[in-house]
Simulated scan of single mutants.
Amino acid sequence: MSLLLIWVAAYLVLGAFTGFFAGMLGIGGGLVMVPALTLMFAAQTQFPSGEILHMALGTSMASIIFTAVASLRTHHSHGAVMWNIFKVITPGILLGTAIGTLFAASVPARPLAIFFTFFVCLVAVQMALNLKPKAARDLPGTMGVAAVGFGIGALSSVVAIGGGALTVPFLTWCNVRVQHAIGTSAAVGLPIAVGGTLGYVFNGWHQPGLPQGSLGFVYLPALVILVAASMVTAPYGASLAHRLPVATLKRIFAAILILLAAKMVWSLFSTP
């Protein structure tokens, strides 16, 4: 098997895995995709070492656009998307993603990797212990929801996630039924992904030394393969979210997150 076919197969497997869990857990898939892509890009000579993490972040964010669409359609068919919340939270999200991608593009890879790993570990612990905020209040007003959207958009774009790790806990804390929180999170992931992708394309547009096939910090050859696989599996994950208890799968997913993030940091810090 040629080296090219090996990388195609690796991207297909990664896309299928992240698409399935994105649909099931209401996340964008970036928590797995970023460390995995970082390791894959680091093993390929055409990627400049100083921009590997930025390329992984940008490519992951672009893939979330398509994953979010596939997941959103399934959750909408189950009546689980609260469009009234989506309309209020989206303006804040778009502003937050614009600022977040600008920040991420200006930070060197190693400090950014430490921040990403810290965030991943927090999410993994929350998933492994199945911690849920106590539903204690109603949603805040329009300005409050928009402000929360700004924070979710900014942090999500920095670590290239669809926002589910933040949106789902926030909505459940505000007494939103968990299935509706996951479905609405899938919808919220779309403007995060669109805004974040535009930011990574813009900030990497004139960056020298990027591999052929790059659109800013988005590596198109990998993106096409990742999307093809994730679009197939995301609807299956979204359907299962409405039928299966996911606590055990969350623990498995959390363990994978920690291992991948640790390996990513090790690879970035072990190179000169």
Rank of each mutant, 00 (worst) to 15 (best):
A234C: 02
R73A: 00
F66L: 02
T101K: 03
L12M: 13
W7A: 12
M82P: 06
P221V: 09
G216Y: 08
V168G: 09
V148K: 08
C121P: 03
L190K: 02
K132L: 03
L102Q: 14
A181E: 09
V32F: 13
T97C: 10
V176T: 04
V227E: 03
A241Y: 05
S267I: 15
P140F: 01
T248F: 13
S230Q: 13
V224G: 10
H206S: 14
Q46Y: 12
C174P: 04
T59M: 08
F118Q: 06
Q207S: 08
V227H: 04
L268G: 02
T172S: 10
N130A: 14
L95N: 10
A181D: 08
G26P: 05
R251Y: 11
F115C: 10
V159K: 03
L12F: 05
A254G: 07
Y219N: 09
N175C: 12
T90R: 11
S106C: 10
Y236K: 01
L166A: 10
F119N: 08
F119W: 11
R137W: 06
L259N: 05
G189F: 04
T101W: 05
V69A: 00
L198M: 08
P272L: 15
A234Y: 00
L198P: 02
R243T: 04
A128C: 05
I89Q: 14
S157L: 08
M231R: 01
L223N: 03
V148C: 08
F253L: 11
A113N: 05
H180D: 12
A165I: 09
L37F: 13
Y236Q: 02
V88G: 07
S270T: 15
K87A: 13
A104N: 11
P191I: 04
